[in-house]
């Protein structure tokens, strides 16, 4: 098993098929990264929403106590 290309230039061009091959790898890894980060971002946002809701509940309770 060895590196299959003569040079870096050759590796990028892939005897003319470079644009096709590299486009596939680019698109795929972009989608995979999105798949990992979108639920992480969503989780953070949900936690922040819940925190805001809890604060609001505290305020409601405070108002109710004063009344």
């Amino acid at each position: 098993m060895s590196f299959q290309f003569d040079s870096l230039q050759d590796f990028i061009q892939m005897s003319g098929h470079g644009p096709f091959v590299w486009a596939c790898y680019g698109i795929t890894f972009a989608v995979l990264v999105y798949l990992v980060f979108s639920p992480l971002v969503r989780r953070r946002r949900l936690i922040r929403q819940h925190q805001a809701w809890l604060k609001q509940m505290d305020r409601v309770r405070e108002v109710a106590r004063q009344a």
Binding site: Q4, M14, H17, V21
Partner: peptide, 21 residues
Amino acid sequence: GLAFAPPDYQQGNSYRIIYLH
């Protein structure tokens, strides 16, 4: 798949897309 697998006898390097497809 991109750098160390040999090219295909018919498709050359374009077959390397198989590793994602």
